[in-house]
Amino acid sequence: MAKIMISGATGLLGRALLKELSKEHDTVGLGFSRAQPPILKVDLFDKKALQQVFSENTPEFFIHSAAERNPDKFDNDPESSIKLNCAVTEQIARCCEQFGCKLIFISTDYVFDGRNPPYAEDAATSPLNLYGESKARSEAMLLKDYPSAAIARIPVLYGEVNALKESAVTIIAEQLIKGVRAFDHDSLRFPTNTADIARVLRQAIEVIGKELNGVYHISAQEMMTKLEMAKTMAPALNIDSATLVAAEIDENAAPRPKDCALKDTRLCATGIEIDSRFSDAINTVLAPHLSH
C-alpha cells in the first residue's frame, strides 16, 4: 500500500483517481473551491500551505492533476492560467524533491500541433495554443530540473460527471438535448474515460513504482470527431443521428490541433493499456443524467 496525494481531487480526473486508488492505497485528496472533508482544502498558490500538507502527510506519490484545461479560458485570462499550470507545478516539484516523493504530472496531447501523428513519447513538442504551451513549458522544466518526475500525457477526457457540461465530451450530450445539431467534424480526438486513466496510473504505480520517470502516453485508441461522438450518443438521447451535420469552423476559438494521436511505446510494453469501447462507456456515463 502506497501513500498517494492527488491535487485537483474535486475535478473530473481527480475524482476518478481518488476512487480508483483508494481501493488499495492510502490516498489524500487536495481541492480548493469545491473541497469538502475528507478532501483537504489547500490553496496551491500558497507555498507555506503546500509545504505544510507535504510535511503532515508525507506522500510517496503525488499525482498533480489540478490545472486549467480549457484553451479558450487561457485567451481570456492567460496570466492566472499559466501561473496555475506552470508556477504551481514547479513548486509541487520542489516539495516532491524535498520530501522524497515521486511526482506524476498530468499533461496533454495539446503539447503537439497535430501535423505529424502519431506522436511517440520522445517527439518534439509544438503547441498551437496557450494551454498546450503551458503544459509543454512545465514538461520541459521537469525534464530538465526534476528528471525523476513522471509525465503522463492524456487526450480529451470524459467520465462520471456531476453535470454534463463538466467535460468537453459529455457537454456534447447537453448540446444535443438543447437542440444543437451541428458539430465539429474537422479535429480528430481520442476520447478517454477517466476511469481508464485512473486504472492505468494505479497499475503503473504498482508495477513500476518509484522507477516511473520521463514521459508516458495514456490514451484510448478510437479516433473520433465531435460529430462522430454526437452520433454515438444520439440514440441514448432518442435523437436520430441522421439529423446531425458538420458545423462550420469557429474562427474565434483558440486554435486546436487536427490530430494529436498519442503512440504508447512505454506502458504498453509492460502490458498496461486501454482497450475499452467509447460506445459502451459513454452510455454508462450518460445514464444517470437522462430522464426516462
Rank of each mutant, 00 (worst) to 15 (best):
5 M>R: 08
20 E>F: 08
70 N>K: 12
163 A>K: 13
22 S>P: 03
69 R>T: 14
263 K>R: 11
112 F>V: 07
210 K>G: 02
95 C>G: 14
189 R>K: 13
35 A>R: 07
103 L>T: 05
82 I>E: 11
101 C>R: 09
210 K>P: 00
190 F>N: 08
121 E>H: 05
222 E>Q: 15
290 L>V: 14
11 G>A: 05
236 A>D: 08
59 P>M: 01
203 Q>V: 01
187 S>M: 01
266 R>I: 09
51 Q>G: 10
212 L>M: 04
269 A>V: 11
81 S>M: 09
249 I>P: 02
80 S>Q: 13
205 I>S: 05
225 T>G: 05
239 I>Y: 07
218 I>N: 08
195 A>S: 15
269 A>F: 04
21 L>G: 09
146 Y>I: 05
279 S>K: 12
11 G>P: 12
23 K>N: 12
275 D>G: 09
3 K>F: 02
137 R>M: 12
289 H>D: 05
17 L>W: 04
265 T>Y: 00
244 L>P: 10
279 S>A: 14
53 V>L: 09
96 C>V: 05
269 A>S: 15
276 S>I: 00
278 F>N: 06
76 N>L: 14
134 S>V: 02
152 A>W: 08
253 A>I: 02
211 E>M: 04
280 D>I: 14
106 I>S: 04
11 G>V: 10
197 I>S: 12
161 V>P: 12
252 N>S: 15
160 E>H: 06
123 A>C: 09
148 S>T: 14
233 M>C: 08
98 Q>L: 14
196 D>L: 04
47 K>I: 13
112 F>L: 06
198 A>F: 09
121 E>C: 07
184 D>A: 12
261 A>E: 15
181 R>E: 05
286 L>D: 01
249 I>Q: 12
126 S>T: 07
173 A>H: 02
206 E>D: 15
191 P>Q: 11
166 E>G: 01
219 S>G: 07
117 P>H: 07
271 G>Q: 04
162 N>K: 14
137 R>N: 13
227 L>S: 07
44 L>I: 04
165 K>E: 14
281 A>M: 13
242 A>M: 01
164 L>P: 12
56 E>I: 00
97 E>K: 15
127 P>A: 10
131 Y>K: 06
32 F>Y: 15
191 P>R: 13
242 A>V: 00
277 R>L: 14
17 L>Y: 05
168 A>P: 08
200 V>Y: 06
278 F>C: 05
254 A>L: 08
152 A>N: 02
120 A>G: 07
129 N>I: 08
98 Q>D: 11
